[in-house]
Design a protein around this nucleic acid. Structure first.
Lengths: 219, 219
DNA sequence: CGAGTAATCAATAAATTAGTTGAATAGGTA
DNA sequence: TACCTATTCAACTAATTTATTGATTACTCG
């Protein structure tokens, strides 16, 4: 095998994987899948794309072997092939945050809106939870909680929060988390909780950042 | 700001970064830059692209903020903006190796050719070096060694090996490393050393894998 | 100053990609 | 069996990307 042929093969593969992430819509799909398994229809709704278009993007993600699927009834459930894909996504987001100040700025403006959402650091959250001075709620949709969640968290999807708010203790802090720094659910939850007289905070991190955190800090 | 506008902004940025890595040639440029600072001309020679084309690719990498440059005399020196870029590249290579058996197969066939190149694991290498039963040589071009190298290694570029071979001890193992698993330099070096009666090995890892290794295993 | 060199720019043709639309499958359900 | 429903396929247009070529800029050095 010639050197050029070799390079074309291996760099071709590397580029193919990158190319799968190189469309904003496909990145969004992958990002959404990093929260758990989803059907084509759900992905299509979340991304506001036509089902055909979504399916087409999923085909290219399949070719790049970033996602896999299983069929059940007449639904097709897609998911990431493994955690490494989620990690790459996190790293690329990190690059964007580091190198484009615009990203951080936009995120903060949009997620925190003009409200004052109180934030709490992951390690402080951990301490509060262990001391039982706070409870941790996962405000993502139930199916994402079922896929995986931070251990010790209670599932209260943000849309159900209003009706289930009674179940939360008034004498403890309420800490909410959602899909991660680019997701509004936890902010909406904190706002509502504050209005109802709770002392509420959000952590920016979602389940995937949590995995990284555990990996790095807790041996 | 509307939700769609928000998503377009942030996912647009994420995709822009991925897109920069989505061409085999640009991935090759980045990979080469992960060994150290290079001029446009050097990059163009290494990748066998025209200077104009190389420059054009570098412009898109600049836009994605994956590389930076400094001017000196009438040369322009490009380098990666930071280590995170190198890490992303490593992770994508990892995905490719995990998910496309073709990549591993092609690599092994090409790098090891039909010769039997003896390999040694990183951690065993470390032990041998510490026990002084082996010496570690860096067979990449001198400028890459100067950029950064595994501490304790000696620089003997593979093209100079023949003339400098006398300087190596016959009574110790010689362990060679180069740019990483996709680079032939170390294999060529081991082959030559074996022919001259040395007991030689290669480690697959290059300087970037080494950084990761240190990060993960040595606190 | 003027020749020479490194790099970039600008214009183009060829190839690839993204989204739309409508039809086709294929498995469940009445 | 016939009808639904979720998904995929196929065809097409518009937009984007790639490599090439030749010109241009910017700087160094004799």
């Amino acid at each position: 095998m010639e050197q050029r042929e070799f390079k074309d093969t291996v760099y071709g593969h590397f580029a193919k994987i990158s190319k799968a992430l190189a469309s904003p819509r496909r990145f969004e799909i992958i990002d959404y899948l990093s929260q758990g398994t989803k059907t084509v229809e759900k992905l299509s709704k979340e991304t506001k794309m036509s089902v055909a278009n979504t399916s087409q993007h999923l085909q290219s993600l399949l070719e790049a072997k970033l996602v896999k699927f299983r069929k059940e009834k007449n639904f097709v459930y897609y998911s990431l092939v493994d955690d490494n894909v989620g990690q790459v996504v996190l790293m690329i987001k990190g690059l964007a945050e580091n190198n484009f100040s615009d990203v951080t700025k936009t995120r903060k403006e949009y997620i925190e809106k003009s409200e004052k959402i109180q934030m709490i650091e992951l390690k402080d959250m951990l301490e509060e939870i262990q001391n039982k001075t706070a409870v941790l709620i996962d405000v993502r949709p139930r199916d994402e909680f079922d896929s995986y969640h931070i251990s010790g968290a209670t599932s209260i999807p943000v849309d159900d929060l209003d009706t289930h708010i009674e179940s939360l203790p008034k004498d403890k802090k309420i800490i909410a988390y959602c899909r991660g720094p680019y997701c509004v659910f936890a902010s909406r939850a904190v706002k509502l909780l504050n209005e109802r007289g709770y002392e509420a905070y959000r952590i920016e991190e979602g389940i995937n950042e949590w995995k990284e955190f555990k990996y790095i800090h807790l041996p």
